[in-house]
């Protein structure tokens, strides 16, 4: 990892985590509807974010460490 990729790859990792969070938030928890309660939105946001981080950490770990 060198040159511009030194910046692009971590940024892309953040992007992957964000889009996965958004997909889980809207697709699995369906928390984007206006009728959804505030507490459910907060819970769904945190749960989606945590799941996304765990999943991508696992994939990046496999990719970079080659286990």
């Amino acid at each position: 990892m060198h040159g511009i990729y030194y910046y692009l790859e971590p940024l892309f990792m953040v992007f992957l985590m964000l889009v996965t969070t958004a997909a889980l938030y809207m697709g699995i928890f369906k928390a984007d509807h206006t009728s959804t309660s505030f507490s459910k939105k907060i819970f769904s946001g945190i749960a989606s974010g945590v799941f996304s981080m765990v999943a991508w950490s696992f994939l990046y770990s496999h990719h970079c460490l080659g286990w």
């Binding site: 692009l8 790859e9 892309f12 992957l16 889009v19 958004a22 997909a23 809207m26 697709g27 994939l59 990046y60 496999h62 990719h63 970079c64």
Partner: peptide, 18 residues
């Protein structure tokens, strides 16, 4: 998002360690 996730689960796209 639907397009994006189908793309990254279909091909080994650059930047995605899936």
């Amino acid at each position: 998002l639907a397009m994006f996730f189908i793309a990254i689960f279909s091909n080994n796209l650059v930047g995605v360690p899936n």
